[in-house]
Design a protein around this nucleic acid. Structure first.
Lengths: 382, 382
DNA sequence: TTGAAAGCGTTACCAG
DNA sequence: CTGGTAACGCTTTCAA
């Protein structure tokens, strides 16, 4: 624990000045006769009502002016100016809860990700946030920690909050909760771990094709005994990648040996254990195709512990780019996903749907990934 | 652009069944006589009103039961059960906007970070999200991209949304907008890039001390000519770290040479440029202390391009842990910040303040960092 | 050109 | 034990 030795400088409670213009002080308690309702926090902010009272006009006139409908309702220039000036002066901002209630729209979108500590996932947030800011939307986030139950709760929470749109990077094991969505649910876009047979907009990389390319790369270097370190079984992501691996081998007339396909999750731990299992059963293997960056990191650790060198003792290709791989003892050859593009697409699709652009039907978008060749694959010379 | 070659599978609009129990269908349009208000989206959900009508009871009774005040108001067990069953059956969830409006509390907290793609920042989100979920709070996020103007807008947006608490990882260049906060602003906790003279709760690492330790480490290995690659100037984070570096040198009676302190931001680009500048002016330098992980990555690239080896040609200590450094050609010796602890603390403080726990005054918490010794520092033998 | 008033869905006060 | 009713702050209809 890092708890010991902490220096705490206790300070006084902030005494910053109240920003409410004194001119508006008459509004601080609009009804001083009535007692404050229980459970209400006493921070009186200006309201249309209080402003109307002060400017001797009505709430609706102010509302109109603020919503840019001044000319539409032919409100006198002078009145408009008076209102705008005053509102600016006291820094008035309408109450979003009241607006949401009245308009039945929240100006919020939701984002559900497996892990906030992994930039691979949080990258999507960049585009959602940018686009949301442009449109004056808020972004709400929830982390699932790859737990389906949490994901279901998260979606339920978002719907409960009446978000106007939702981007989900699903755990990928179950899709029932997506199928069960009510027809009046807000637009939803799935990212990466998709379900091809689901009638929802989805954006992902062409996993099978990318895997085929990676496997072919190893084959081109003469490798024939290639292990595949898979991720979470029964997810489309893992299965599609394994499928690509199989396709590549089969196409060259090499039989697929199922004992070479090992691992059970997209984690370092799985990668680490896979190495042990592999070397025990198939010490003659000459190359590994790892299905994610985390799996790779775990495998690398296991190889290092055994004094095995990449690529001298074993060649390696990994799915996903890794921050700083170019400085690794052996810079890794990887399949690099267009992560930024995935985020941008998902965001675009989401807001198109929010805007009710019906030209945009439910789509299943497959983006291409690139092989980046570095030095972790060596010619196999038996 | 990755746009080419995309396969789009156009699907039909989802036709999932409406989840509203048929028993509740009488509520779908409560007032079919009245036309729908303009601007309102037609997705009728059950309300207390509609449920009350159906169960032949009143809104307040239902409200009480749902808020666990059934026994307090001595509502008949039978009634309670009837209500709970039905509410569960139709999957009713109260309208949050109406609750917010009525209670004047939003059950939302805000999180403002410089960059969503950097796990160093997003790690805080893990704790905020976990704690928020426990308490049934929502988490809203905004990214500033290290731009003060954006930060000011972000804070303004959060206040506008009436979040009940706010965690900010500030840009760090300006603090005026924090000073100007109204006294009725929600609790705010600052993280990492702090302003020691600000009367706000702040959580950060002891930058000066950590820097001193790092510099001492280099001094212990015999280095005397040590460069310091600083970050964004005029931020407490950078200045405190430089201060620690100065202190260590001075304590050993070694004069501080300002021409050895170079760099202008916490970016790879700054680190890269610093190497060029350093080698041009002081080719005799034997060690570098880099003030952030990004700076380090940039510097490493520059060294590699010049064929300079770490640590044979130059020793290096870096602030911040880097994912996978143990696999680097030269595993780096770093100052590892207790990032998880920082996030946990900030979250704890925030929710204590939200709960109005006044035992918790404004605090400036300094957490200790650790030196993790690997192989990037070599004995200096002239 | 403006305003009064009716809700949006909830909770709390009071009255039975 | 239960329910009517008045807010909360906003937007829009309708009337002037």
């Amino acid at each position: 624990m890092q708890t010991a030795g902490i220096k705490e400088v206790i300070m006084e409670q902030a005494q910053t000045p109240n920003r409410l213009d004194p001119i508006h002080r008459g509004h601080i308690r609009l009804r001083p006769d009535k007692p404050l309702r229980k459970g209400m926090r006493n921070m009186q902010k200006p309201t249309l009502h209080s402003i109307a009272k002060y400017l001797d006009t009505s709430t609706c006139t102010i509302s109109r002016v603020l919503n840019g409908k001044g000319s539409q309702y032919r409100i006198a220039e002078a009145t408009q100016e008076r209102i705008l000036n005053y509102v600016k002066k006291i820094n008035y901002r309408p109450n979003v809860a009241a607006q949401s209630l009245r308009l039945n729209r929240t100006r919020e979108v939701g984002l559900i990700l497996p892990d906030f500590a992994n930039p691979f996932y949080t990258n999507v947030a960049k585009y959602v946030a940018t686009e949301a800011r442009k449109r004056n939307y808020s972004v709400q986030i929830i982390e699932t920690e790859d737990d389906t139950k949490t994901e279901i709760d998260a979606i339920s929470h978002m719907l409960h909050c009446r978000v106007e749109g939702l981007i989900v990077w699903p755990v990928g094991l179950e899709s029932k909760h997506f199928r069960d969505l009510a027809s009046n649910a807000p637009p939803i876009v799935l990212v990466d771990r998709c379900f091809p047979d689901l009638k929802l907009s989805q954006v992902t990389v062409d996993n099978a094709l990318s895997s085929e390319i990676a496997t072919n790369h190893l084959l081109d270097f003469g490798h024939r005994e290639i292990a595949c370190f898979q991720g979470l079984e029964h997810t489309a992501t893992s299965e599609d990648r394994v499928e690509g691996y199989r396709r590549a081998l089969t196409a060259r007339g090499i039989g697929v040996d199922d004992s070479l396909i090992i691992g059970d999750s997209f984690t370092q731990s799985s990668g680490y254990r896979s190495v042990g299992q592999l070397l025990a059963s198939r010490p003659s293997v000459s190359a590994v195709f790892s299905l994610s960056n985390q799996i790779t990191l775990g495998a690398l650790r296991a190889f290092a512990e055994r004094g095995l060198n990449v690529p001298d003792d074993i060649s390696m290709v990994s799915f996903d780019e890794i921050d700083g791989v170019e400085f690794f003892a052996t810079p890794l050859t990887v399949i690099s996903q267009p992560i930024a593009e995935i985020g941008r697409r998902a965001t675009e699709v989401l807001f198109e749907k929010i805007d009710g652009n019906d030209s945009c039907k439910e789509q299943y978008q497959l983006l291409p990934a690139n092989l980046i060749s570095r030095s972790s694959v060596k010619l196999f010379a038996q």
